[in-house]
Write a protein that binds this DNA or RNA. Sequence first.
DNA 1: TTCAATGTTTAGAC
DNA 2: GGTCTAAACATTGA
Length: 308
Amino acid sequence: MPELPEVQTVVSELNRKLKNKTIRSVVVNVPKMISIGPATVSNKRQVASDKVRIFKRLLLNQKILSVKRRAKLLIFDLQGPWSMLVHLKMTGQFIFEDQKQRAKTGGKYRLLNKKTALLEHLPSKHTHVVFYFTDGSVLYFNDVRKFGYLKLVHDDEIGQVKELKEFGPEPLEKHFTFEVFSAQVKKRARGKIKQVLMDNKVVAGIGNIYSDEILFLSGIRPERKVINIQERELREAYANTKKVLAKAIKAKGSSVGDFVRTDGSWGQMGKFHFVYGRSGQKCKKCGAIVQSVKLGGRTASFCPHCQK
DNA sequence: TTCAATGTTTAGAC
DNA sequence: GGTCTAAACATTGA
């Protein structure tokens, strides 16, 4: 579920918590989730044990200068000439535990408020990579489905990373004007608007949740084709893209599925969803029953009365 | 037991 | 090439 707001939440928190920390050791439990080099698919010819050994060696004693985001990709800028790119895919989590907490829990992270946060001991069976820092703090990478990845790329080769090259504009940046949005969307004029919005080459960072919400607020049905959408509606979609994403970042993301913040707590945006995940329930604006259709194998939820 | 679930890539059809 | 669909990745929970 992590989309732009969820990834941004994690990035902001990690940037604050990890800045200038030095990696003391790394544990890799699932070698297939790590890779070295710019290739999209991890190099199968890399022997797992070699890969893990090199991965650890490259990270050892490295200071983290900053953590940034591009689309839904996290970028850890290391002091040396390497960067670590991390994709959370659907169920990836980063959980941070400082030295104090760690001392209290005896190295077994446990969140106690089950009303507002996940409740589990860490490392758990879904903890696949663990980073230990020289100040005694720890960062756990969990991923129930193991779709996520951590990839070390040399700064000279970062320009060759395919996903980074292909991402469209960042919707919350200044230069993302209506003209930019419109031109990007119209590149896929025959495509259905929801799928076009979810295409990271068109606009970076929008997934199933926020495309549903953007289209609801804009009064546009998800299966409408771009060519049949009026200028007026497109302007609405542009404004609502910015609005919804900014609001979601303020709420620290939507905790549907497995998303948690770096302290294990839940994002609060889910409370504000108008249509996502509300199929069969009453529209919060008009009371009609929210419906859903399948678009390209994904569920699109919409209000048949508010969206035309 | 079957189905659906956040993301992304890839393959095949037209 | 664009567009659509389905399948793949692995697991959980309804």
